[in-house]
Amino acid sequence: MDEFSLYVLDITMNSVRAGAENIDVSLKEDGEWLTFTVKDNGCGMSAEQVRKLSDPFFTTRKTRKVGLGIPFLTMLAEMMGGHVTIRSTPAVNEETGEPDPDHGTVVESVFGRNHIDFIPLGDMVETVKTLIQGSPDVNFTYTHEMPGGKVELSCAQLKALLGDDIPLSNPEILGWIDGYLKEQYAEAEEK
């Protein structure tokens, strides 16, 4: 994948497939580091599953035998002097067998911004729109903190304004989201 925003799309799709209702995507550019975090309240994973995630030949899907999302992200992060940390709480406690209300997964990845292998950030607005188009019911939040300012979006806020009849995947709403994010980016980049 040749732009960072595609990694963001791919890793966030994992949270969608974990059945999460709330997914927080954040990018933070701070000094020489870029931190990308996805936090969800999806089904979570057992300690064993988390351990196996970096193995490309581990996947829970049935359509193919390899799972490359996390290995790709890890490779990119490590190439740039960074790392990936995954914390997960499964929906059912492995020891007690009780449901765990705090289930979900956090994937935090750190990248060296000044590293020669740093790939272009790419079109983050397109990634956010693609996520919302595919899962209009999910409450995504998106935050991108840059030296010049902050870009923010909350799907829950938009839904509260729009009501139940108009899905966020509606092309006109996606068009509004596009403009809303692009204007925030333009403002942050001006500074």
Binding site: M1, L6, L9, D10, M13, R61, R64, G67, L68, G69, F72, E126, T127, K129, T130, Q133, G134, P171, L174
Partner: peptide
């Protein structure tokens, strides 16, 4: 198709072209 394989092969602009 928007799994890792699709995204890496360029599915995002394809999806976008269909939506628009």
């Amino acid at each position: 198709g928007m799994a890792t394989c699709g995204i890496a092969a360029g599915a995002r602009p394809v999806l976008n072209a269909f939506v628009e």
